[in-house]
Design a protein around this nucleic acid. Structure first.
Lengths: 225, 225
DNA sequence: GCATCTTTATAAAATCTTTATGTCTACAGC
DNA sequence: GCTGTAGACATAAAGATTTTATAAAGATGC
């Protein structure tokens, strides 16, 4: 395996330096960002193996950075932050952080947690964009193009399409789709799905009456080809 | 999707009870063990989705339990322990724990860490598939291909084929097939089977009149070769 | 007010169940 | 050998039921 690449997003230069030294000692490569916007840009351009994210950034909320990153980034995110109470931890973890470590932290523990996060990383490569036939879904930019032209999708339509696209070729059950898009407790609202699938087909299929990409698997769910 | 199953290995009954109550509130199922040996046995028999492991066990070292578990267990292990210093944390994480939380812990944070651990389990999607002749059955994706082309199967057809494929080479009796697909109480409805076997043959066999894969064992059941 | 989401209504399609009929094999009796 | 019969199996197709597609009305939120 090549050297793992770590992106550090933290506004304190001395913390970045401390992390850099220790990560280099472990044989990792690092990139650094001092604010959220820069961090998101670097992540999109270089797709690191782990992101170490401080929640207290100058330009935008760390939770916001976390959520935007998780739209498309599937590898590990370790949040590293001055603790602002249990709610802050719970929020970060529920927004998709793989781990949360309070500042000040012990370097040895942090490095062990990074090793653990790397070990658990998904083997399948993180994709920034997915191409399905004439469709191109830019997960980082949250934009869908069909034959190069940008499609106008609502939030829910995009979420549904992106979820299906990330699992292209496999059937996703009604219950799973409903849970992921609308949340637990909506798993029986199959009609929601039907409505949005029909709307999506009108936008992405050449002939909505004979869908070639968004396939119904009756009694089970839907599949994107 | 079914309820996630959590195995709690801890020698303190009040901790087990506390965890049990909170995990049940989240909709999880729990099993409990008071010592390492019992925990390893339960894990092997039931393969939980997450293991919560205390390192201070009466019969054997928690690190020993962790290592033995990791020899075959691939899902999440959350270590929960009275902290004995940084080395203890590093050792647990490097031995394969996905997370380490010091006692006393905050319940909300712990639950968030369990949710995070479960979430990571899902993405590590096991790409399990079975190949039978020119047929390829993708169990995770619920898709069947014949010579690369996706077959259109109804829910029941797929269930029946997948069941036969998981037991390829073995004869499955009428009663067993009926019980597994339609449920107890349908074990005498042999005609259902005949209808669906005929439909499957039309789809998966080159010559449905001379089946080479889906074999009738007269008076007993069917077998997939 | 506009875009979006939720809910309702209804038609269409797909699937499952049941019935009917035909085929094959084994075997007994002539 | 030939024929008849019974039991298990295969297949098509009709009927019943469930599931899906779609439009459109109502509700919600910015």
């Amino acid at each position: 395996m090549n050297k793992p690449e770590v992106l550090i997003i933290d506004d304190e230069p001395q913390i970045r330096k401390l992390l850099e030294i220790n990560l280099h000692a472990q044989g990792y490569l690092t990139r650094q960002a001092g604010c959220g916007r820069e961090g998101l840009m670097l992540a999109a351009n270089h797709v690191p193996d782990v992101v170490m994210l401080d929640l207290g950034l100058p330009d935008m909320s760390g939770h916001e950075v976390l959520m935007q990153l998780r739209e498309w980034y599937q590898k590990a995110i370790v949040v590293l932050s001055v603790e602002k109470g249990e709610d802050d931890i719970v929020k970060a973890l529920d927004n998709g952080a793989n781990d949360y470590l309070s500042k000040p932290f012990r370097v040895g523990e942090l490095m062990a947690r990074v090793r653990s996060a790397l070990r658990n990383n998904d083997t399948r490569a993180t994709q920034q964009s997915i191409t399905v036939g004439e469709l191109e879904i830019d997960l980082a930019g949250r934009v869908v193009k069909r034959d190069g032209a940008i499609l106008k999708l609502t939030g829910t339509e995009y979420n549904l399409l992106a979820l299906l696209a990330r699992n292209a070729g496999r059937v996703l059950t009604h219950g799973f789709l409903l849970k992921e898009i609308w949340g637990v407790g909506y798993q029986t609202e199959t009609q929601y799905l039907r409505v949005f699938i029909a709307q999506l087909r009108k936008k992405i299929e050449a002939d909505a009456n004979h869908p070639r990409h968004l396939i119904t698997v009756s009694g089970v769910g839907y599949r994107l080809e």
